[in-house]
Structures are given as structure tokens and as C-alpha cells.
Design a protein around this nucleic acid. Sequence first.
DNA 1: GCCAACGTTGGC
DNA 2: GCCAACGTTGGC
Length: 226
Amino acid sequence: MAPKRKRQETGKEKRASKRTKATIVHSEFPKLSEKSAKAASAKGNQTIGTPATYSHWLLKSEPNSRFENGVDMKFSFDDLKSSPNQTACWDGVRNYQARNFLRDQMKLGHDVFFYHSNCKEPGIIGQCKVVKESYPDHTQFDPKDPHYDRTSSKDNPKWFMVDVKYVRPLDKFITLAELKKTHKAHQSSAGPLRNLALFTKARLSVQPLSQEEWDYILKMEHSDES
DNA sequence: GCCAACGTTGGC
DNA sequence: GCCAACGTTGGC
């Protein structure tokens, strides 16, 4: 299958085995690595606020060709549409925070914005949805793949992915510029996009959205603003 | 192509 | 466990 386009490097991690839900302490965003998650847990159960759970997401993908170890990282919204069954696995994510969202929180039927990044006009182009929950990302086991991770094993995979299916293009492409403008305005007015991960966690390729953020962005789809 | 922001690594 | 060096992301 054609590789998707989800960057982020390989690192080292000590995997925490068999943690039970009850013992996991989440801050609003999961920890950056298993190591720091363990460190945070070890500090005791001083819960840092209510565990945030999400059911809406934004996935970044590059619509333009860019080669990494001879492999094209391009995966546009149209590429998703023309995939078999209009469905693709979201492989190649190599960032712990993003991995944790993929592995732990993205559930069947969850709504997803498809975002075009690293291109002339970045922005949200369409909607897709989760059609298969977390399973091991095969590219970590393939030495020829740019996202190969020699520190991972089939017995104890480090990286996970979900499958997403094309839903629809937005009626209006929502540009990064428009989102940023709104985000800045909402920072002053305490509006719904004041904490949008696109700006507060800019480098994250798998981003959570609150219901409020999701709804607001959908409204922008039919607003007059340029 | 530049480079700011930020995640990871590894020495100490 | 700190933190400097390094590498990557992704807008511009």
C-alpha cells in the first residue's frame, strides 16, 4: 500500500507494559514519551485536571510529492478518495503524543478533518472518519521503509495506526490563514478556537479537537469570510 | 530555501 | 534528571 504521509522521528522509549486504564494519569495532552509518562505517573496520582478524551481529530498530510529515502511522502485528500474502498491506513507516525492519540483515543466512527500541510496553501480540505481502530504500523518492521524502526519488534510494536475513510470534501477549503486569524481573535475574546492545537501544538500531526472546536470550524465552512 | 519552534538524544 | 546539541516540522 502506498505510504501515507506522516512524519516524525523515531526515538527511544521504555514501554510501559500492561497499564490499566485506572492507573493512567492523563494531563490534557498525553505525555511526550513513555518515559515522561512514567515519570509523571510516578509522581503519584495528582491528577492534572480531568483526563481529556476526544472524539474529533485533525490529521495532517502532505499533498505534494516529497521524497524520503526514495519513497514519496505525498498523500492528498484525493489520494484518500481514490484508495481502495476510499480507505487508507495512517502509517508512518513517529511521535509519541501523536502515537498515543492513534493508539488510545481514536475510535470507530470518530470524525476527522483532513489537513494539507507543507504546501502552498495549507488548510482543511475535507472530512474523513475512523473505520478501524489502532493496530501495529507495518512500516516500522520494514528495513526499506523510511519509517523503519529497528528498536521495535513484532512482539512488542512501538508504533500504531488507524484506518480512515473518505467522507466528503468541505464546501469551502478552510485555509490556515483563516484559522489563524480566527484563533488570534478568539484568544482575545475567549472564543472557541482560542486553544486550537493547530497553533498551540503546531508540530503535532495527529491533533485532537474539542466538540466546540469541531462545530465552530464546520460553521466556518459556510461563512462568507474569504 | 530559511529558520523558529520544539521533540529527542545522550553525556554528565 | 538536567540540558546542550542535534534533528525535524512545516509555515513563510
